[in-house]
Design a protein around this nucleic acid. Structure first.
Length: 307
DNA sequence: GAATTATGCCCAT
DNA sequence: TGGGCCTAATTCC
Protein backbone atom coordinates (compact mmCIF):
# COMPACT_ATOMS: atom_id res chain seq x y z
CA UNK A 1 0.00 0.00 0.00
CA UNK A 2 2.52 2.54 -1.00
CA UNK A 3 0.96 5.85 -0.18
CA UNK A 4 2.80 8.18 2.18
CA UNK A 5 1.96 6.39 5.41
CA UNK A 6 3.61 3.18 4.19
CA UNK A 7 6.87 4.92 3.33
CA UNK A 8 6.99 6.56 6.76
CA UNK A 9 6.54 3.15 8.34
CA UNK A 10 9.39 1.79 6.23
CA UNK A 11 11.64 4.64 7.40
CA UNK A 12 10.61 3.86 10.96
CA UNK A 13 11.56 0.20 10.49
CA UNK A 14 14.97 1.16 9.15
CA UNK A 15 15.53 3.50 12.08
CA UNK A 16 14.59 0.75 14.52
CA UNK A 17 16.82 -2.02 13.17
CA UNK A 18 19.30 -0.72 10.59
CA UNK A 19 20.44 2.81 11.40
CA UNK A 20 23.82 2.74 13.13
CA UNK A 21 24.69 -0.65 11.67
CA UNK A 22 27.19 -1.58 9.02
CA UNK A 23 25.31 -2.83 5.96
CA UNK A 24 26.14 -5.58 3.54
CA UNK A 25 24.47 -4.39 0.33
CA UNK A 26 23.88 -6.57 -2.70
CA UNK A 27 21.58 -6.94 -5.68
CA UNK A 28 20.55 -10.60 -5.93
CA UNK A 29 18.58 -9.78 -9.07
CA UNK A 30 21.65 -8.06 -10.54
CA UNK A 31 20.00 -4.93 -11.88
CA UNK A 32 21.38 -2.77 -9.10
CA UNK A 33 24.78 -4.40 -8.74
CA UNK A 34 26.77 -1.22 -9.35
CA UNK A 35 24.72 0.82 -6.90
CA UNK A 36 24.86 -1.86 -4.25
CA UNK A 37 28.64 -2.03 -4.59
CA UNK A 38 28.83 1.69 -3.76
CA UNK A 39 27.01 1.10 -0.49
CA UNK A 40 28.36 -2.29 0.50
CA UNK A 41 30.25 -2.29 3.80
CA UNK A 42 29.30 1.24 4.82
CA UNK A 43 27.11 2.21 7.75
CA UNK A 44 23.55 3.48 7.61
CA UNK A 45 23.25 6.80 9.42
CA UNK A 46 19.74 8.01 8.73
CA UNK A 47 16.38 6.97 7.26
CA UNK A 48 14.00 9.66 6.03
CA UNK A 49 10.65 9.58 4.30
CA UNK A 50 9.26 12.55 2.40
CA UNK A 51 5.98 11.92 0.65
CA UNK A 52 6.34 8.59 -1.11
CA UNK A 53 10.13 8.79 -1.31
CA UNK A 54 12.51 6.97 1.01
CA UNK A 55 16.04 8.26 1.60
CA UNK A 56 18.64 6.13 3.34
CA UNK A 57 21.89 7.93 4.26
CA UNK A 58 25.22 6.13 4.48
CA UNK A 59 28.36 7.36 6.22
CA UNK A 60 30.13 7.95 2.90
CA UNK A 61 27.85 10.86 1.94
CA UNK A 62 25.94 8.52 -0.30
CA UNK A 63 22.18 8.23 -0.19
CA UNK A 64 19.91 5.53 -1.49
CA UNK A 65 16.69 6.95 -2.93
CA UNK A 66 13.82 4.49 -3.31
CA UNK A 67 10.35 5.04 -4.74
CA UNK A 68 8.10 1.99 -4.61
CA UNK A 69 5.76 3.03 -7.42
CA UNK A 70 2.72 0.83 -7.83
CA UNK A 71 4.32 -2.51 -7.15
CA UNK A 72 7.32 -2.03 -4.97
CA UNK A 73 7.65 -3.51 -1.50
CA UNK A 74 10.21 -4.06 1.22
CA UNK A 75 10.33 -7.41 2.99
CA UNK A 76 11.96 -7.54 6.40
CA UNK A 77 13.39 -10.64 8.06
CA UNK A 78 15.40 -11.53 11.11
CA UNK A 79 15.37 -9.16 14.06
CA UNK A 80 12.52 -6.79 13.27
CA UNK A 81 11.33 -4.52 16.05
CA UNK A 82 7.63 -3.78 16.45
CA UNK A 83 6.85 -0.32 15.13
CA UNK A 84 3.16 -0.37 16.06
CA UNK A 85 1.82 0.62 19.44
CA UNK A 86 0.18 -2.81 19.47
CA UNK A 87 3.52 -4.53 18.96
CA UNK A 88 2.56 -6.17 15.68
CA UNK A 89 5.33 -7.04 13.29
CA UNK A 90 4.68 -6.83 9.59
CA UNK A 91 7.26 -8.53 7.43
CA UNK A 92 6.25 -6.77 4.26
CA UNK A 93 5.72 -3.06 3.65
CA UNK A 94 4.62 -1.85 0.27
CA UNK A 95 2.30 -3.24 -2.36
CA UNK A 96 0.02 -6.01 -1.06
CA UNK A 97 2.01 -9.16 -0.50
CA UNK A 98 -0.37 -11.19 1.57
CA UNK A 99 1.33 -14.50 1.01
CA UNK A 100 4.64 -13.20 2.28
CA UNK A 101 3.37 -10.96 5.04
CA UNK A 102 4.56 -12.18 8.38
CA UNK A 103 2.47 -11.56 11.44
CA UNK A 104 3.23 -12.25 15.04
CA UNK A 105 0.86 -14.52 16.92
CA UNK A 106 -0.60 -16.25 13.90
CA UNK A 107 1.68 -19.24 13.76
CA UNK A 108 4.15 -17.38 11.61
CA UNK A 109 7.01 -15.29 12.74
CA UNK A 110 9.94 -13.53 11.15
CA UNK A 111 13.02 -15.63 10.61
CA UNK A 112 15.06 -15.79 13.80
CA UNK A 113 18.79 -15.24 13.32
CA UNK A 114 19.40 -17.68 16.18
CA UNK A 115 17.78 -20.48 14.17
CA UNK A 116 20.73 -20.65 11.86
CA UNK A 117 18.63 -20.12 8.73
CA UNK A 118 19.59 -16.47 8.51
CA UNK A 119 19.84 -14.87 6.13
CA UNK A 120 17.25 -16.70 4.03
CA UNK A 121 17.95 -17.08 0.32
CA UNK A 122 16.36 -14.32 -1.75
CA UNK A 123 13.01 -15.21 -3.31
CA UNK A 124 11.96 -13.67 -6.61
CA UNK A 125 13.37 -10.50 -8.11
CA UNK A 126 15.19 -8.82 -5.23
CA UNK A 127 16.64 -5.56 -6.51
CA UNK A 128 18.46 -4.69 -3.30
CA UNK A 129 19.27 -6.65 -0.19
CA UNK A 130 20.46 -4.71 2.86
CA UNK A 131 21.83 -6.97 5.57
CA UNK A 132 23.10 -6.39 9.09
CA UNK A 133 24.29 -9.01 11.58
CA UNK A 134 20.71 -9.63 12.63
CA UNK A 135 18.29 -7.98 10.22
CA UNK A 136 17.52 -8.14 6.53
CA UNK A 137 15.60 -5.89 4.13
CA UNK A 138 14.75 -7.05 0.59
CA UNK A 139 13.45 -4.57 -1.99
CA UNK A 140 11.37 -5.73 -4.96
CA UNK A 141 9.80 -3.87 -7.85
CA UNK A 142 10.66 -0.24 -7.09
CA UNK A 143 10.06 2.34 -9.76
CA UNK A 144 13.14 4.24 -8.57
CA UNK A 145 16.25 2.97 -6.84
CA UNK A 146 19.43 5.01 -7.14
CA UNK A 147 22.47 6.26 -5.27
CA UNK A 148 22.65 10.06 -4.89
CA UNK A 149 24.79 12.60 -3.08
CA UNK A 150 23.33 14.99 -0.51
CA UNK A 151 22.81 17.79 -3.01
CA UNK A 152 20.79 15.60 -5.31
CA UNK A 153 18.67 14.43 -2.39
CA UNK A 154 17.99 18.03 -1.42
CA UNK A 155 16.99 18.74 -5.01
CA UNK A 156 14.44 15.94 -5.04
CA UNK A 157 12.96 17.04 -1.74
CA UNK A 158 12.80 20.67 -2.88
CA UNK A 159 10.48 19.67 -5.69
CA UNK A 160 7.98 18.09 -3.32
CA UNK A 161 5.11 19.82 -1.57
CA UNK A 162 4.78 19.75 2.22
CA UNK A 163 4.50 16.46 4.08
CA UNK A 164 3.12 16.83 7.60
CA UNK A 165 5.06 13.78 8.77
CA UNK A 166 8.43 14.96 7.45
CA UNK A 167 9.67 17.74 9.71
CA UNK A 168 7.01 20.05 8.31
CA UNK A 169 6.92 23.31 10.23
CA UNK A 170 3.88 25.45 11.02
CA UNK A 171 4.14 27.04 7.58
CA UNK A 172 3.34 23.73 5.90
CA UNK A 173 -0.41 24.24 6.14
CA UNK A 174 -0.14 27.74 4.68
CA UNK A 175 2.05 26.45 1.90
CA UNK A 176 -0.42 23.69 1.06
CA UNK A 177 -3.34 26.12 1.01
CA UNK A 178 -1.40 28.48 -1.24
CA UNK A 179 -0.49 25.76 -3.71
CA UNK A 180 -3.96 24.26 -3.76
CA UNK A 181 -5.99 27.46 -4.10
CA UNK A 182 -3.82 29.24 -6.65
CA UNK A 183 -4.41 27.04 -9.66
CA UNK A 184 -7.25 26.54 -12.14
CA UNK A 185 -6.89 22.77 -11.94
CA UNK A 186 -9.47 20.36 -10.49
CA UNK A 187 -8.88 19.69 -6.83
CA UNK A 188 -9.02 15.96 -7.56
CA UNK A 189 -5.87 16.44 -9.63
CA UNK A 190 -4.16 18.78 -7.21
CA UNK A 191 -4.38 16.34 -4.31
CA UNK A 192 -2.49 13.79 -6.41
CA UNK A 193 0.15 16.33 -7.42
CA UNK A 194 3.20 15.63 -5.28
CA UNK A 195 4.38 19.21 -5.64
CA UNK A 196 1.16 20.45 -3.99
CA UNK A 197 1.22 17.97 -1.12
CA UNK A 198 3.53 14.98 -0.85
CA UNK A 199 2.27 11.54 0.09
CA UNK A 200 -1.36 11.41 -1.03
CA UNK A 201 -2.23 8.64 -3.49
CA UNK A 202 -5.36 7.41 -5.19
CA UNK A 203 -7.10 5.98 -2.13
CA UNK A 204 -6.54 8.95 0.15
CA UNK A 205 -7.47 11.38 -2.62
CA UNK A 206 -10.92 9.87 -3.17
CA UNK A 207 -11.60 9.43 0.52
CA UNK A 208 -10.48 12.92 1.50
CA UNK A 209 -12.68 14.52 -1.15
CA UNK A 210 -15.66 12.56 0.12
CA UNK A 211 -14.91 13.38 3.76
CA UNK A 212 -14.85 17.06 2.78
CA UNK A 213 -18.01 16.54 0.65
CA UNK A 214 -16.09 18.31 -2.10
CA UNK A 215 -16.88 17.90 -5.78
CA UNK A 216 -13.65 16.61 -7.39
CA UNK A 217 -13.86 18.88 -10.45
CA UNK A 218 -13.91 22.06 -8.40
CA UNK A 219 -10.84 23.97 -9.48
CA UNK A 220 -8.33 24.88 -6.80
CA UNK A 221 -8.90 28.61 -7.21
CA UNK A 222 -12.55 28.19 -6.26
CA UNK A 223 -11.84 26.17 -3.12
CA UNK A 224 -12.32 28.49 -0.13
CA UNK A 225 -9.32 28.83 2.17
CA UNK A 226 -11.26 27.34 5.05
CA UNK A 227 -12.08 24.23 3.00
CA UNK A 228 -8.44 23.92 1.94
CA UNK A 229 -7.32 24.19 5.55
CA UNK A 230 -9.86 21.49 6.41
CA UNK A 231 -8.34 19.21 3.75
CA UNK A 232 -4.87 19.73 5.20
CA UNK A 233 -5.99 18.99 8.75
CA UNK A 234 -7.83 15.90 7.59
CA UNK A 235 -4.68 14.71 5.84
CA UNK A 236 -2.61 15.31 8.96
CA UNK A 237 -4.98 13.09 10.93
CA UNK A 238 -5.30 10.38 8.29
CA UNK A 239 -1.55 10.21 7.80
CA UNK A 240 -0.87 9.97 11.53
CA UNK A 241 -3.40 7.21 11.76
CA UNK A 242 -2.03 5.42 8.72
CA UNK A 243 1.51 5.52 10.07
CA UNK A 244 0.35 4.23 13.46
CA UNK A 245 -1.79 1.36 12.15
CA UNK A 246 -0.35 0.57 8.75
CA UNK A 247 -3.87 0.60 7.31
CA UNK A 248 -5.82 3.25 5.46
CA UNK A 249 -8.76 3.62 7.77
CA UNK A 250 -10.71 6.45 6.22
CA UNK A 251 -14.15 5.66 7.59
CA UNK A 252 -15.41 5.57 11.17
CA UNK A 253 -11.87 5.70 12.40
CA UNK A 254 -13.11 6.97 15.76
CA UNK A 255 -15.53 4.09 16.25
CA UNK A 256 -13.55 1.26 17.90
CA UNK A 257 -15.83 -1.52 16.65
CA UNK A 258 -15.88 -0.24 13.07
CA UNK A 259 -12.14 0.23 13.30
CA UNK A 260 -11.62 -3.39 14.30
CA UNK A 261 -13.78 -4.57 11.40
CA UNK A 262 -11.84 -2.40 8.99
CA UNK A 263 -8.49 -3.63 10.31
CA UNK A 264 -9.73 -7.19 9.88
CA UNK A 265 -10.39 -6.31 6.25
CA UNK A 266 -14.06 -7.18 6.35
CA UNK A 267 -14.78 -4.46 3.83
CA UNK A 268 -16.69 -1.22 4.34
CA UNK A 269 -13.30 0.27 4.99
CA UNK A 270 -13.75 3.15 2.57
CA UNK A 271 -16.49 5.63 1.78
CA UNK A 272 -16.07 5.59 -2.00
CA UNK A 273 -12.78 4.01 -3.06
CA UNK A 274 -13.42 1.06 -5.38
CA UNK A 275 -17.16 1.15 -4.70
CA UNK A 276 -18.36 1.88 -8.26
CA UNK A 277 -22.13 1.39 -8.52
CA UNK A 278 -22.58 0.56 -4.84
CA UNK A 279 -24.85 2.79 -2.75
CA UNK A 280 -23.29 5.71 -0.93
CA UNK A 281 -23.29 5.00 2.81
CA UNK A 282 -24.74 8.46 3.42
CA UNK A 283 -27.35 9.01 0.70
CA UNK A 284 -27.69 5.78 -1.26
CA UNK A 285 -26.64 7.24 -4.61
CA UNK A 286 -24.55 4.92 -6.76
CA UNK A 287 -20.86 5.71 -6.40
CA UNK A 288 -19.43 7.07 -9.65
CA UNK A 289 -16.04 6.48 -11.21
CA UNK A 290 -14.12 8.40 -13.82
CA UNK A 291 -10.53 8.92 -14.83
CA UNK A 292 -8.82 11.94 -13.33
CA UNK A 293 -5.07 12.47 -13.32
CA UNK A 294 -4.80 9.12 -15.17
CA UNK A 295 -6.24 7.19 -12.24
CA UNK A 296 -9.70 5.97 -11.27
CA UNK A 297 -11.45 8.55 -9.16
CA UNK A 298 -14.45 7.37 -7.11
CA UNK A 299 -16.98 9.82 -5.72
CA UNK A 300 -20.60 10.35 -4.73
CA UNK A 301 -22.37 12.67 -7.21
CA UNK A 302 -24.98 13.62 -4.60
CA UNK A 303 -22.96 14.18 -1.43
CA UNK A 304 -20.01 15.84 -3.08
CA UNK A 305 -20.90 19.31 -4.27
CA UNK A 306 -19.01 22.47 -5.15
CA UNK A 307 -18.18 25.03 -2.48
C1' DG B 1 -0.70 -20.30 -18.98
C1' DA B 2 -2.54 -15.87 -20.31
C1' DA B 3 -4.84 -11.88 -18.95
C1' DT B 4 -5.90 -8.69 -15.47
C1' DT B 5 -5.07 -5.72 -11.79
C1' DA B 6 -2.79 -2.48 -8.46
C1' DT B 7 -2.47 2.48 -3.17
C1' DG B 8 3.02 5.84 -9.51
C1' DC B 9 5.29 8.34 -12.27
C1' DC B 10 8.23 9.38 -16.30
C1' DC B 11 8.84 10.46 -21.01
C1' DA B 12 7.90 11.25 -25.97
C1' DT B 13 4.81 13.11 -29.14
C1' DT C 1 -2.61 11.96 -24.51
C1' DG C 2 -0.54 7.60 -24.74
C1' DG C 3 2.91 4.24 -23.87
C1' DG C 4 6.28 2.24 -20.97
C1' DC C 5 8.08 0.33 -16.85
C1' DC C 6 8.64 -2.05 -12.23
C1' DT C 7 6.42 -7.19 -9.94
C1' DA C 8 3.39 -10.70 -8.19
C1' DA C 9 -1.19 -12.25 -6.77
C1' DT C 10 -5.48 -13.30 -8.60
C1' DT C 11 -8.77 -14.41 -12.06
C1' DC C 12 -9.98 -16.28 -16.25
C1' DC C 13 -9.70 -19.80 -19.86
Amino acid sequence: MPEGHTVHRIARQFRADFVGERIAASSPQGRFAAGAALLDGTALTEARAVGKQLFLAFDTDRWLRVHLGLYGAWDFHGQISPIDAGGAVRGSLGAPRVARALRMGEGERPVDPADGDFPPAPVGAVRVRLLTEASLADLRGPTACEVLDADAVAGVIARLGPDPAADAGPEAETEFVRRLTSRAVPVGQLLMDQSVVAGIGNVYRAEMLFRARLEPHTVGRRVPGEVARGLWRDWVGLLDDGIATGAMLTRDEDDPAARERALADVGERHWVYKRTGEPCYVCGTAIAVETMATRNLYWCPTCQVGP
